[in-house]
Design a binder for these strands. Structure first.
Lengths: 158, 158
DNA sequence: TGAGTAAACACAATATATTGTAATGACGTT
DNA sequence: AACGTCATTACAATATATTGTGTTTACTCA
């Protein structure tokens, strides 16, 4: 590993610890030439994930964007940011586990809804109304009725 | 290092090579439980880089945002995602190499344009029209004329 | 301001990664 | 179709990283 200060190619590890619940390794290294120290992280390679929009345009999947969309859907719903972040992480994991490198906004939205339904029904309908773009009021009412039948389900917000 | 597939905490290195001119180390690892293999990269910790917008607001530099902007500029131009990512990586490297922890959107945009000009002229003009926000048609035409003089240059799109 | 968390530092015993060499497969280019 | 490049795989000898324990400092939050 090359020294980021003097660009000498050899550096030695002085310390090495798991981080981020074991998902990464943090190392301290020392340059053999200038003796300066620096920190490195080893982490799993992330393949770029493209999102295909309805009009065919592609863009890079962006976790923050997803979280922001969820925050909007969950506004005033007393769902903690932590729960929302966890939801986003779960969705991203599920999508990435398919090994496809592309996903349509539709499938992305449906995956989100699948999880969101279990957490907060109002947020679910808000999100659905944006992602599904209900063709008409009938569809929307139908969705609402399906929801009403689940009133007994517990609230998972932390 | 935890397995990204089964989340078992112990994995072993099966191979380890320098990459990116020695700036990173690429390792192949194998899970002790499910025996699946995956790739990891060890790289120097990145200091947060602030982008200063025209109105003075600061925000964290976001690589995905840059790539998405480039994807938009390169729409329908038959430039592969790989080339765009490489461009973004080069821009980020150049900016980070200055050792400043802040960069104006202007300088960021100009760095992008510098590279983009070499790759695709149409994309360059699209990007320029957004980033430079040409004050008037005269400026835009001037930029176009400069471009026209380079018609002889080869097309670098892969 | 005091508690809690995380990064940095040191040291020593043990386990594991690194490196060269070489062959194969995938991909993009000519 | 042939070529170059690069990721992947394998194997073996050697060098180096890892892990526990413990201390110090810095920063955030109550």
């Amino acid at each position: 590993m090359r020294c980021p200060f003097c660009y000498f190619p050899e550096t030695k590890v002085t310390d090495s610890r798991g981080a981020d619940e074991g998902n990464t390794i943090r190392r301290r290294r020392e340059c053999q030439q200038c003796n300066k120290r620096f920190t490195t992280y080893e982490m799993v390679e992330e393949l770029p994930l493209m999102v295909i929009k309805k009009d065919g345009r592609r863009e890079l999947f962006d976790r923050n964007k997803l979280i922001n969309g969820l925050l909007r859907a969950c506004e005033k719903r007393s769902i903690s940011v932590g729960v929302i972040e966890e939801l986003a992480v779960n969705v991203e994991k599920e999508i990435r586990n398919t090994l496809d490198r592309e996903v349509t906004t539709q499938r992305l939205g449906e995956t989100v809804m699948h999880y969101l339904k279990e957490i907060d029904q109002v947020a679910y309908v808000r999100f659905a109304s944006v992602y599904r773009q209900f063709a008409d009021i009938q569809n929307f009412m139908h969705e609402l009725e399906v929801l009403m039948k689940q009133v007994s389900k517990p609230d998972h917000s932390k």
